[in-house]
């Protein structure tokens, strides 16, 4: 466990050591600010961050790959993966440590948007309902964690960070837009209802939208947590496969 925490701590520190970490946070704040101003800060309109959180999936799409791209890729590129793999940490431990580090950085990334909530409370009368804001932040973390795990797997597969970013970006885009696009291609009729159900089951947006309305559904939590866990395990397997190449 301590090895995992050490890897995570080292990962978080590395984000802040490099300009890319700060640029990521600034980029996210810029996008979040833009979204907040256009959706939630209109005089005489309901004071809620619902629209902001409903778009959370899209908001994280360009940012999370920037965080995940270097998790393992950087080690592969620089060759530091070899000493890491010969360390006492297991492959799963390494991947979990990296993931945990990315997740902590993600939390740090999201934290400054609390100023948006504070501004909204300041300019609203009466104060907005805190429930949907809390669940919205939970959604940001769960969705972000899920995307991060996808990016982690891709980062494990390539030593090229640019490629890792691009692949992760399009994979997340596929998760966000894929079910809707494929759903439109499914022919109407009861015979294809199973396909519609499957697509509805894997769609990210409706789940994020529920959180933004203040609803925490355990099935959504399980979806994001199990999805993240699955990609972390697959990342560990991908990393372990290097030993046998």
């Amino acid at each position: 466990m301590s090895v995992i925490l050490t890897i995570a701590r080292r990962e978080v520190a590395s984000f802040f050591r490099l300009p890319v970490g700060w640029v990521c946070v600034a980029l996210f704040m810029f996008l979040a600010g833009l979204l907040m101003v256009t959706t939630s800060l209109t005089p005489d309109q309901p004071a809620s961050m619902r629209a902001f959180f409903a778009f959370a999936g899209w908001l994280l799409m360009p940012v999370v790959p920037a965080v995940s791209m270097r998790l393992i890729s950087e080690e592969l590129r620089s060759g530091t993966i070899e000493p890491l793999m010969t360390s006492p940490a297991s492959d799963l431990g390494i991947v979990v440590g990296k993931y945990l580090g990315g997740l902590i950085f993600l939390a740090v990334l999201i934290l400054p948007t609390a100023t948006h909530a504070a501004v909204l409370v300041w300019v609203s009368d009466p104060a907005p309902d805190p429930g949907p804001i809390v669940s919205g932040y939970l959604a940001l973390m769960l969705v972000g964690g899920f995307y991060l795990s996808v990016g982690l797997l891709i980062s494990t597969l390539t030593g090229n960070q640019t490629l890792a970013y691009v692949l992760a970006f399009f994979s997340i885009l596929g998760l966000l837009a894929g079910p809707g696009l494929l759903g439109a291609l499914i022919p109407p009729g009861e015979g294809w209802s199973w396909a519609r159900e499957v697509l509805a089951g894997v769609a990210v947006n409706p789940r994020a939208a529920d959180f933004s309305r203040g609803v925490v559904d355990t099935s959504h939590v399980v979806y994001f947590v199990s999805g993240s866990a699955l990609f972390v395990v697959l990342s560990a397997l991908a990393l372990a496969s290097r030993r046998w190449r």
């Binding site: 704040m29 100023t115 501004v119």
Partner: peptide, 24 residues
């Protein structure tokens, strides 16, 4: 229903600039 209070245009612009550019 919580609503955003009416804001003077100048004050609203300042808030918008702070959120979009100031914080980043």
């Amino acid at each position: 229903v919580a609503r955003v209070k009416p804001l003077e245009p100048g004050r609203l612009l300042i808030l918008q600039v702070i959120l979009i550019a100031g914080l980043p």
